[in-house]
Measured scan of single mutants.
Amino acid sequence: YTAFGDLEVFLHGLGLEHMTDLLKERDITLRHLLTMREDEFTKNGITSKDQQKILAALKELQ
């Protein structure tokens, strides 16, 4: 049995499950992801397509 964390649930909701391992390897938490700047997305290997999905979701949360 494995409990999913906030990061996994957030990514799954956006259809971005493939990013879970990448972000965990880089010790990026959901809190960090929510406050990242555009250059940090790129530096951490997050594609512009995935970045757009994340940023759109963040706008909806605000």
Rank of each mutant, 00 (worst) to 15 (best):
Tyr1Pro: 10
Tyr1Trp: 06
Thr2Lys: 13
Thr2Ser: 11
Thr2Tyr: 04
Ala3Arg: 14
Ala3Phe: 10
Phe4Ile: 13
Phe4Asn: 12
Phe4Gln: 15
Gly5Arg: 12
Leu7Lys: 01
Leu7His: 00
Leu7Thr: 06
Glu8Phe: 01
Glu8Thr: 06
Leu11Val: 02
Leu11Glu: 00
His12Leu: 12
Gly13Arg: 14
Leu14Cys: 14
Leu14Tyr: 10
Leu14Pro: 02
Gly15Lys: 07
Gly15Val: 00
Gly15Leu: 01
Gly15Ile: 00
Leu16Asp: 01
Met19Cys: 12
Met19Leu: 15
Met19Phe: 05
Thr20His: 15
Leu23Ser: 03
Lys24Asn: 09
Arg26Ile: 00
Arg26Ser: 06
Ile28Arg: 01
Ile28Leu: 07
Thr29Leu: 02
Thr29Arg: 02
Leu30Asp: 01
Arg31Ala: 10
Arg31Glu: 13
His32Glu: 14
His32Lys: 14
Leu33Val: 02
Leu33Met: 06
Leu33Arg: 00
Leu34Met: 14
Leu34Asp: 02
Leu34Trp: 11
Thr35Lys: 10
Thr35Ser: 12
Thr35Cys: 08
Met36Ala: 01
Met36Arg: 00
Met36Val: 00
Arg37Cys: 09
Asp39Glu: 14
Asp39Gln: 08
Glu40Thr: 03
Glu40Lys: 01
Phe41Arg: 05
Phe41Pro: 03
Thr42Ile: 09
Thr42Arg: 11
Thr42Tyr: 09
Thr42Pro: 09
Lys43Ala: 11
Lys43Ile: 07
Asn44Ile: 08
Asn44Lys: 07
Gly45Asn: 09
Gly45His: 07
Gly45Leu: 03
Ile46His: 00
Lys49Val: 10
Lys49Glu: 11
Lys49Leu: 07
Asp50Ser: 04
Asp50Lys: 01
Gln51Asn: 05
Gln51Cys: 09
Gln52Ser: 09
Gln52Ile: 10
Lys53Arg: 10
Lys53Tyr: 01
Ile54Pro: 05
Ile54His: 03
Ile54Gly: 04
Ile54Arg: 03
Ile54Leu: 11
Leu55Phe: 09
Ala56Val: 11
Ala57Ser: 13
Leu58Pro: 14
Leu58Gly: 15
Leu58Ala: 15
Lys59Val: 09
Lys59Arg: 12
Glu60Met: 15
Gln62Ser: 09
Gln62Asn: 15
Gln62Gly: 08
